[in-house]
Amino acid sequence: MTRISEQNPALDRTIAPVLQAIWAEALGLETVGPDDDFLQVGGHSLLAMRIAAEVSETFDIELPMTAVFRHPTLASFEVAVENAVREQATAGRFDRGRR
């Protein structure tokens, strides 16, 4: 799976640190590494809801809580968020073109 940040390095500089901060704050940790597993570092369903809500609001996307469990490492979650951001941007361009 190709990360959007590989196509656009600016995204990696903006999305990755923001997601890391959101996870760290929700989990009560100073830092979270890219390979840290959400459940293994103390995550649970309420924290997944908090993370999904914060990410959805921050990036103006619709991200279900289940995304945290389907993509349990920060690195895999980042890919999922990047894809959602790209899909939202594409949908927005399509919707504007229909008006």
Score class of each variant (00 low, 15 high):
Gly33Arg: 12
Val81Arg: 07
Met1Thr: 03
Glu54Leu: 06
Asn8Pro: 01
Asn8Cys: 05
Thr73Gly: 10
Glu78Gln: 14
Thr14Met: 13
Thr66Lys: 14
Glu62Phe: 13
Ile4Glu: 01
Pro17Met: 08
Gly43Gln: 01
Ser56Gly: 15
Asn83Ser: 14
Thr31Val: 08
Ile4Lys: 00
Gly28Thr: 01
Leu11Ser: 10
Leu74Lys: 02
Gly28Cys: 05
Pro64Leu: 08
Arg3Ala: 06
His44Tyr: 07
Thr2Ser: 11
Ala80Ile: 06
Glu25Leu: 12
Gly92Ser: 12
Pro17Glu: 09
Ala16Pro: 01
Thr90His: 07
Phe94Ala: 12
Glu78Lys: 12
Asp95Pro: 00
Met1Ala: 11
Arg13Ala: 11
Gly33Glu: 13
Ser45Trp: 03
Glu62Asp: 08
Asn8Tyr: 13
Pro9Val: 02
Ser5Phe: 13
Val55Ile: 10
Gly43Cys: 10
Gly43Phe: 04
Leu63His: 02
Val85Phe: 07
Pro17Cys: 11
Ser5Asn: 14
Ala26Asn: 10
Glu57Asp: 10
Arg13Gly: 13
Ala89His: 15
Ala75Gly: 05
Arg50Glu: 09
Arg96Leu: 11
Ala89Lys: 14
Thr66His: 06
Asp95Val: 11
Pro34Cys: 03
Glu57Leu: 09
Arg3Ser: 08
Pro72Gln: 04
Asn8Arg: 13
Gly43Ala: 10
Ile4Gly: 01
Glu87Gly: 05
Asp35Lys: 13
Ile61Leu: 13
Ala80Arg: 15
Val68Phe: 01
Ser45Ile: 07
Gln7Thr: 08
Val85Cys: 10
Asp60Leu: 08
Ala67Phe: 00
